[in-house]
Simulated scan of single mutants.
Amino acid sequence: MSEEVPDRPPQSGLVGALSVPRNAAIGVAVGIALAILAYLARVFELFGPFAGTREYPVLGPEGWFLVLAFVLATSTALLVASILTVVEAVRLTREL
């Protein structure tokens, strides 16, 4: 018996067929745009002043909102890329 491990098939075909790089780029663009909009609306009070006032001991309000904007951008990017990839997988499955 040979102890050679068989080669694994390349995964790039699946990634390419599902348009994962394109979906990821769209997700990142949507996530960044949404985070910028939310950050600007909150920090510059575009929709009027916020009713509550609090003290922010470590970063200040802009610092905390920047961290929250990053979380919003990354989670939105992941969600949009996942949805687009699932839609593409369903479309490819129906073509078979």
Rank of each mutant, 00 (worst) to 15 (best):
S2I: 03
S2N: 14
E4S: 14
V5I: 09
R8D: 02
Q11W: 12
S12E: 05
G13D: 13
V15P: 03
G16C: 04
A17S: 15
L18H: 10
L18D: 05
V20N: 07
P21H: 00
R22I: 04
R22K: 15
N23D: 14
N23K: 14
A24N: 04
A24W: 13
A24D: 02
A24E: 02
A24V: 12
A25L: 12
A25D: 01
A25T: 02
V28H: 06
V28E: 01
V28D: 05
A29E: 00
A29D: 01
V30D: 04
L34I: 12
A35G: 12
A35H: 07
L37I: 02
A38S: 09
R42T: 06
R42G: 06
R42Y: 14
V43A: 06
V43P: 06
V43H: 09
F44P: 00
E45M: 00
E45H: 04
L46N: 01
L46M: 05
G48S: 12
G48C: 10
P49M: 02
A51G: 14
E55I: 13
P57T: 04
P57N: 01
P57Q: 00
V58L: 11
L59F: 11
G60N: 04
G60T: 00
P61A: 13
P61R: 15
G63H: 03
W64S: 09
W64D: 12
W64H: 14
W64Q: 11
F65Y: 12
F65Q: 12
V67S: 01
V67R: 02
L68M: 09
A69V: 07
F70K: 05
F70T: 10
L72W: 04
A73W: 07
A73K: 07
T74K: 06
S75Y: 15
T76C: 03
A77W: 09
L78D: 07
L78H: 13
L79S: 15
V80K: 01
V80T: 02
S82Y: 08
S82L: 14
S82M: 08
I83G: 10
I83S: 03
I83E: 04
I83D: 02
L84E: 03
L84H: 06
L84R: 12
T85P: 08
T85G: 09
V87D: 07
E88F: 11
A89W: 10
T93Q: 06
R94W: 10
E95K: 12
L96T: 09
L96C: 05
L96N: 08
